[in-house]
Design a protein around this nucleic acid. Structure first.
Lengths: 255, 255
DNA sequence: CCATCTTTGTGCACGCGTTCACAAAGACAT
DNA sequence: ATGTCTTTGTGAACGCGTGCACAAAGATGG
């Protein structure tokens, strides 16, 4: 799904489908909100609406965790919060390092959603000596030279990469070598990691591109779609027009 | 009515499966890198490796776009870049507004990956009057009051929400009312939008939680996993006290 | 204790996405 | 031309995820 490695067992997650795992944080968020409002119980229908999913799907998801509901009543909010937290491993403290303290890295360091869910930013690391020592989100920025020592000393198993694309693979290699086994990658690159290391990626521009696709399709439907295909403002500068579906000899690139 | 519809109505997207659309930006990125190195052609095998996917999947993905390859040779890099760009709608200019210029909003405004793919940040909008007028990424921050006018004047169809969770739905409603039909949501909330409006969400803490799940599983295998599963799901339905983690800090509004 | 009502948990069917495996297409050499 | 070699494009099988629909479980009331 989001890994750099090609082969992934997928349903390796001890009976819990990967798709379900991806939704558990969603349920947890909705449940936490209910908990703060002191709501004692919630039905699958209500919770599903709050989480933005189908109620049948939610019940099936929960069924993988066990029978935690009461028929005719619903689910106990506090109990469910605890069960999901435990299943996700959020009842323990996860030290995290963030590498690359640019705009994005700083935003991540300041992101409140981490601390409230068991993640603790153990250190901020940047390659720029000018940044070293600067305080970001109350933490001093450390230099890349200290990466290995920081990871090992703090028993860090999760690393966040927010560096430029060019530096990501090297940072990744060093993190893995130092003991990190889970990586959240914000750099627009495919990371290659050894087996046993999980990589999830978040690419901001990819999400926008997917939106653009659908946006174009909407516009095309409204306008008869001839516009999108026929009127190409630019981009036709270097490449010759290619109206035909195929049959074109790929010889566009000169030498 | 539209609940937090994140569900896919269908795959009637011009016959191109949603999963394929989600991978096109990945291919495009890899192809762009090849293009910069002046590589004329590439085989499905090479490109698949560069993009981090299976080669058969890549070929099938491309087959939805048309027959753009040459058997025995591979794909013409420049030609393919153009075709994918066109399919994604990146040959035209997409004005985008970013609402919520906190750490994350500023990071997004400075993110170079947008401009290089046809996205133009038309305006930055924030509700804090103290921010108004401040320059971020070379653009002045405008006040929320101007939201509707900005969207309409610039024909903005894509909006990015980087506000706190509490403000997200209202901002969303106003964006939609002003004409926005695609929203990229970074706030940890389920947005409800009318039909015809696409919403994609990016939740930074959710990704970490998924990693934590797998991380715990890895550790559990090593330690015999008796620890994590110690308490069997008995009829412990009594909503008794949860001495557990306690780390349930009521901080529903990160960001 | 029985009847009724609510809501869970799940068997089942269906559709999408992935992967395999191979025939067809073209390049290239002879 | 003919044959060989490479690589694409795709038919088909398979597996996962989703959603329906309903029986079982428990609450609630008489």
């Amino acid at each position: 799904m989001a890994t750099g490695r090609t082969h992934r067992p997928a349903t390796r997650s001890r009976g819990i489908p990967e798709a379900t795992v991806a939704r558990l944080p969603l349920y947890l968020r909705a449940l936490t909100a209910l908990s703060e409002r002191s709501v004692p119980t919630v039905s699958s229908e209500e919770l599903a609406t709050a989480a933005g999913v189908n109620s049948a799907k939610l019940r099936k998801d929960f069924s993988y965790l066990g029978s935690y509901g009461t028929r005719g009543v619903g689910y106990d909010v506090e109990y469910l919060v605890y069960q999901i937290s435990r299943e996700l491993g959020l009842t323990q403290d996860w030290p995290v390092v963030i590498v690359g303290i640019g705009n994005l890295g700083a935003a991540l360091a300041n992101y409140g959603g981490f601390a409230s869910r068991g993640f603790r930013v153990a250190a901020l690391i940047d390659a720029d000596p000018a940044q070293t020592g600067k305080l970001v989100a109350g933490l001093p920025v450390r230099h890349t030279d200290e990466l290995e020592e920081i990871v090992e000393r703090n028993q860090v198993s999760i690393g966040v990469i927010a560096t430029p694309a060019g530096a990501a693979q090297e940072v990744c290699d060093r993190l893995v070598a130092a003991g990190v086994t889970s990586i959240l990658n914000f750099a627009p690159t495919v990371l290659s990691v050894p087996d046993g290391v999980d990589v999830r990626k978040v690419d901001l521009s990819i999400e926008l591109q997917i939106l653009a696709f659908h946006e174009q399709r909407k516009a095309g439907e409204d306008l008869g779609e001839a516009v999108a295909r026929g009127t190409l403002p630019k981009a036709a500068e270097e490449a010759a027009d290619r109206p035909g579906p195929d049959g074109d000899v790929p010889a566009v690139m000169p030498a």
